[in-house]
């Protein structure tokens, strides 16, 4: 492998990892606060990509790249805000009807409703847009870029990585600096104690779902911009990878989720480079198992109390 290919693959890995990281954040936030593996989260990401497709292609009638920078920024801002808000609300609704009634039920009950919700979301999209891949407008010209040595770096990759890193940092600041962030952290640590200290548990959990789902919505927009298509089954695979990323990094830990996402991106890209693309899932999971054998709570996870 020459230096050019190596650099190119590094960029590819960062871009892929950024998308996984965005989805993984939602997983890890929900897990952190109510210890639920929210298997419908991947499908929230999928619905997000369809919402953004609807806005861009059907509502704005866009087909391809926008060359006017001001217009491009404007449309992108609208797309992200719209998709994030819509998916955030969808997340809140899912929590309200499928998870909240089961908050004191056996732990596996909400896991099964999560699977049910995932089927429901897939079927709704399938009935709405048909069961086939759909073209999604790539607003940023995917061929435009600049050269680093002999490698070609596309602006779209830079954009995807910047969006992901920006949202991760923003989330981190929100959780560590704001009042609501503190409420979330305390609810995650001890729900009853937090309630006694005046934290409104229902609102806090709803906000967590809103933020997590909004991030998945953002990932949905990125899916359309970067890959240029969407499909009603992408949520399942995306969710699986993101869940793996969240656990690899230490589930419940937002920095860990980001780290896990990038790690998996790197593993996959270099498995492909080596010609083992058809083994990439096996490689990802083998490495995950190895990591967990030596660090049973993931790369950055804290050993939890006996409840785990």
């Amino acid at each position: 492998m020459d230096v050019g290919t190596l650099t190119q693959q590094l960029v590819n890995a960062l871009t892929l990892g950024a998308i996984y990281a965005l989805i993984a954040l939602g997983y890890t936030m929900v897990y952190g606060i109510i210890e639920l593996i929210n298997f419908a989260h991947g499908d929230v990401f999928m619905v997000g990509s369809f919402v953004s497709l609807w806005l861009l292609a059907d509502f704005f009638g866009l087909r391809g790249p926008i060359n006017n920078p001001a217009e491009l920024v404007g449309v992108l801002v609208v797309a992200f805000v719209f998709s994030m808000v819509v998916m955030g609300l969808v997340g809140v609704v899912i929590e309200r009807f499928a998870y909240r009634p089961l908050r004191n039920a056996p732990r596996l009950a909400p896991l099964i409703t999560a699977i049910g919700v995932s089927f429901i979301l897939q079927n709704i999209i399938q009935i709405w847009r048909g069961p086939a891949q759909l073209n999604s407008p790539q607003l940023i010209n995917v061929q435009a870029g600049f050269r680093v040595g002999s490698a070609e770096v596309h602006w779209i990759s830079v954009f995807v990585i910047a969006i992901a890193v920006g949202l991760i940092i923003g989330l981190h600041l929100f959780i560590s600096r704001t009042r609501m962030g503190r409420a979330m952290r305390s609810t995650a640590l001890d729900r009853e104690a937090a309630q006694l200290m005046g934290v409104d548990i229902n609102t806090t959990i709803a906000v967590t779902f809103f933020i997590g789902s909004a991030l998945a919505g953002a990932a949905g927009v990125v899916q359309g911009l970067y890959y240029g298509y969407t499909f009603f089954t992408i949520g399942f695979q995306g969710g699986l990878k993101a869940f793996t990323a969240a656990v690899l990094g230490g589930i419940g830990n937002t920095t860990g989720a980001a780290l896990g996402g990038f790690t998996i991106g790197f593993i996959e890209v270099f498995a492909s480079q080596a010609g083992y693309a058809n083994w990439s899932e096996a490689i990802v999971f083998s490495i995950l198992i190895l990591v967990l054998v030596f660090r049973p709570t993931g790369l950055l996870g804290q050993p939890t109390a006996e409840r785990g």
């Binding site: 897990y31 210890e35 593996i37 699986l240 869940f243 793996t244 656990v247 589930i251 058809n278 083994w279 899932e281 096996a282 990802v284 999971f285 083998s286 995950l288 198992i289 967990l292 054998v293 049973p296 709570t297 993931g298 939890t304 785990g308």
Partner: peptide, 23 residues
């Protein structure tokens, strides 16, 4: 290899095994 793992970490390892076998 999973004896040390707890709760959902165990879940993901079994999930991984379930993915590796068909591959």
């Amino acid at each position: 290899p999973t004896l040390r793992l707890r709760g959902d970490y165990l879940a993901i390892v079994t999930l991984g095994f379930g993915e590796i076998v068909p591959v």
